[in-house]
Design a binder for these strands. Structure first.
Lengths: 117, 117
DNA sequence: GGTATGTGCAACGCCACGATTGCAGACGAT
DNA sequence: ATCGTCTGCAATCGTGGCGTTGCACATACC
């Protein structure tokens, strides 16, 4: 496993914000500093800095010092992990729900098969 | 495409809550009504009802009337869609960032190749 | 018809989140 | 050494989300 269940909720929380997606999309194109992002997006540099630390906490962005400034990059691998994890959960649902459905259908045509044994 | 960008943020927002995940995990096992969920989870039925409508708005649960009660089921297909969409975004990042990296390396060994034309 | 169970809507309080402003420290350039 | 720029921390404000309580309506069962 790559992420615990409560961690997954934190990552999803980080992804559940429009401004952070703007930042991520921008950093998915090329690296940029917080000040540079503040000039491109309609929010303050401090707000962007907070978002960046939050994104870094869940591993969605990576900082790289370049002189006196810090260039940030979107971490694609982390996003892939989240996507795979969601699909894994979905697979678990389909299996269990199909099992329940089969049991219901079996009980419909043959109610209480345990008695026969 | 299955989901627009702002819709994706809404779905992720619905997934960014611990109580809603408890509901989803429970409904991923078998269908249940809001009242039944209220007896299993440490929250009120009204709170669960609000969560269910929110999850329904983004297509993560499906209601089915069974007599006087409404049984809800987790929609696995929707979660798969979200996972695939996240992976698609991640793929876009990796391609663009690798392109930028190549350009940087090319400029390192051959600075300003445009002049040669 | 009466009772019990399940659902629906509205109002309220509480807390976290997003964004802003202000100030201070650190590093590079001149 | 000085100036300009980038970063960092703290305080504040407004808004939205989560949960609760209370009441009203609909439906199945006796």
């Amino acid at each position: 496993m790559t992420t615990s269940a409560p961690e997954l909720v934190r990552v999803l929380g980080a992804l559940a914000d429009d401004t952070r997606w703007q930042i991520l999309d921008r950093l998915g194109t090329s690296a940029a500093s917080a000040s540079a992002l503040a000039q491109e997006l309609p929010v303050t540099r401090q707000a962007i800095a907070r978002h960046l630390t939050q994104l870094q906490d869940v591993g969605l962005v990576t900082p790289v010092r370049a002189g006196r400034e810090i260039r940030w990059t979107a971490t694609a691998d982390r996003l892939v992990e989240v996507g795979d994890q969601l699909r894994a959960v979905a697979d678990g649902w389909t299996r269990r729900l199909q099992t329940v459905k089969r049991l219901a259908e079996a009980a419909d045509s043959d109610p209480d098969p345990d008695r026969s044994g």
